[in-house]
């Protein structure tokens, strides 16, 4: 049996190996993604993002537990937890599982830690591909926990259907949160550690700054991102977050935005693959050797980089 077949039949070892292949960008991984593609497009992809230390992992743990034990209907949950790789050694310490021990032993849950491996948008290069694999494996809800983001890491907005931005009181004044582009990508805003002083005040201030998302077409309802207070460590406010996730999903489907996001994501993937394929074709036609000659010419100021590119395209694109 192939890894793809085993994965589709629920073999967890096959799933785990598939994720490694995809993460390592091996030829097997590419082949696998291709054969799994028809089975993707069903899962609800939810991004959980926010600064380090606000309680993202704890929230993910509680949400997954809630969806497995209390939500109607129960849902299977996959978790992709991304942590940063060291830019110096390439190594990484992936510690999100520490806060996810409540989920151990449940066959309806699959947790995978990923190192960012040099990507800077809060995700790993292969996060989207890993999510496709988990989607094909039949997980209904995929929670993607980003690297503790600073201010501009918004890749998750392109990948997820629903983005939950987590904040906590006492990490700096609210201007810190406003500076962050991450407020603009919030479909749901969670203020965690709400038992700490300043939570309610933070909620009031942020309420004035949240954007409105318009539905497609005239007279469609628009989505006002809710602000929810949680104390994830004690499980408080979790059902409300799950409810907001479900209403956002229903909203996206009702308004056609679900399809639109899906379309944008797939177009981006095709573009990226096309760029890569064009480059490889160009190289295979001897582009690399000519490139070196052009670099020398540019280096000696005999031509500008713009002229070099024009010449390279002329000399390598004519005959197949």
């Amino acid at each position: 049996m192939s890894v793809a077949q085993a994965l589709l039949q629920g073999d967890r070892r096959a799933l785990s190996r598939a994720l490694t292949w995809v993460e390592n960008a091996t030829p097997e991984g590419e082949e696998l993604l291709q054969s799994l593609f028809p089975y993707t497009g069903k899962a609800h992809l939810v991004g959980i993002t926010g600064p380090p230390g606000v309680g993202k992992s704890t929230l993910v743990n509680q949400l997954a537990r809630y969806y497995r034990k209390e939500h109607t209907p129960l849902k299977t949950v996959a978790i992709l937890a991304v942590d940063p790789s060291s830019p110096f050694t390439g190594g990484a310490l992936l510690g999100d599982r520490i806060r996810m021990r409540d989920l151990a032993g449940d066959p309806g849950v699959f947790i995978r830690s990923m190192a960012s491996r040099g990507a800077v948008g809060g995700l790993a290069w292969a996060s989207g591909k890993a999510a496709q694999v988990l989607d094909a494996a039949g997980f209904e809800l995929i929670l993607i926990e980003t690297v503790g983001t600073g201010q501009a890491e918004v890749d998750i907005a392109r990948l997820a259907h629903t983005v939950v931005v987590v904040q906590a009181p006492g990490l700096g004044d609210e201007v810190q949160a406003l500076k962050a582009g991450i407020l603009e990508i919030a479909d749901i805003l969670v203020i965690n550690k709400a038992d700490r002083p300043g939570a309610a005040e933070m909620a009031r201030t942020l309420a004035q700054w949240l954007p409105k998302v318009e539905g497609e077409g005239e007279g469609e309802p628009s989505w006002q991102p809710p602000i929810l207070l949680t104390t994830a460590l004690r499980g408080q406010g979790i059902p409300e977050v799950a409810r907001a996730l479900e209403s956002h999903r229903a909203f996206l489907q009702r308004t056609g935005l679900w399809q639109a996001r899906e379309r944008d994501r797939l177009e981006a993937e095709i573009r990226e693959r096309l760029r890569e394929a064009l480059w490889q074709t160009w190289e295979a036609r001897g582009g690399r050797e000519r490139l070196e000659a052009m670099v020398q010419a540019v280096l000696q100021r005999k031509m500008a980089p713009q002229d070099a590119v024009r010449r390279l395209l002329e000399t390598t694109s004519a005959q197949p």
Binding site: R17, S86, T89, G91, A92, G95, R97, R101, G105
Partner: peptide, 27 residues
């Protein structure tokens, strides 16, 4: 980590089942 490896740290008081499950999921 400093030697360039990806280290999954699971914390204390892990049962043998939890360790095997984590090893599987993390490959």
């Amino acid at each position: 980590r400093d030697a360039g490896m990806e280290v999954i740290y699971t914390g204390i008081r892990q049962t043998p089942e939890m360790i095997a499950e984590a090893a599987l999921q993390e490959d």
